[in-house]
Simulated scan of single mutants.
Amino acid sequence: MANKSPNTNKIIELARLKSHETEKKVFNAIKAMIKNKEKINYNSVSIKSNVSKSFLYKNSSIRGKIDMLRGEQLKLEKVTNHKPNTSDKSKDVIIETLKGKIENLIKENESLKEALASKYNNFYNNL
């Protein structure tokens, strides 16, 4: 005769403990990847922590962390637009060009303000 109500509490507790240890292992791998400035996605975290991708997708806290970090890395990749091999001379040329553009824009802005002021003056004088 089979036991109709087996005591599985210990098995459930051990499974929960194993899952918790695996989470720690994944978070440690993510921290190491951040320190090493490695690309973070499900595949790379899975390989680095030696955990299945399905575990990463099923665990909501890990999934949220990976999604957040992956989004941040995408933003950082878009922001970095400088060329690392530019010389000081080319940087100086770029700076001078930008200064000239700024001066032209300032002059244009002042002339537009003066034109607007004269238009307002004419408008109020004609009232």
Rank of each mutant, 00 (worst) to 15 (best):
K31Q: 11
H20C: 00
S90N: 05
L56K: 02
I62K: 01
I11F: 08
T80Q: 10
V45S: 04
S5E: 15
I95S: 06
E21M: 07
V79A: 05
S87T: 14
I12C: 00
A32E: 10
K91L: 13
E103P: 02
A29G: 13
G100P: 00
N50T: 14
N3E: 13
I30E: 08
S87L: 00
E21V: 04
K25E: 02
I12Q: 10
E108Y: 01
K35H: 09
E72K: 10
E110H: 01
A29V: 10
K113E: 15
S87K: 04
T97I: 05
S49G: 12
Y42F: 15
I30P: 04
K4F: 14
A29R: 03
Q73S: 08
K24T: 11
V93N: 07
H20G: 04
A15R: 09
S44T: 11
L112Y: 12
K99V: 09
A115C: 05
K113C: 08
E103R: 07
K107N: 15
N36M: 10
K10W: 10
S60A: 02
E13K: 06
F55N: 10
N28P: 01
E21W: 04
M68Y: 15
E103M: 01
I95Y: 11
I40Q: 02
I66T: 04
K107C: 09
I62Y: 07
S60F: 01
K89T: 13
I102A: 05
M68I: 09
K48N: 13
R63H: 13
A29E: 11
N50I: 13
N41Y: 02
K78L: 14
K83E: 13
S90A: 06
L17C: 03
G100I: 01
T22N: 03
E23M: 12
I94M: 05
L112N: 13
E103Q: 08
A32I: 08
V93L: 06
G100K: 02
F55K: 01
N50M: 11
S52N: 13
V93F: 07
N41T: 10
M33C: 05
S111L: 15
S46F: 00
P6L: 15
S61E: 15
N7T: 09
L14N: 05
S60H: 08
K113M: 07
S60Q: 10
K37M: 10
K35S: 10
V79D: 08
N41F: 01
N109G: 02
E96V: 01
A15G: 04
E38T: 06
N9R: 08
I94G: 01
N43V: 15
N28C: 07
P84R: 11
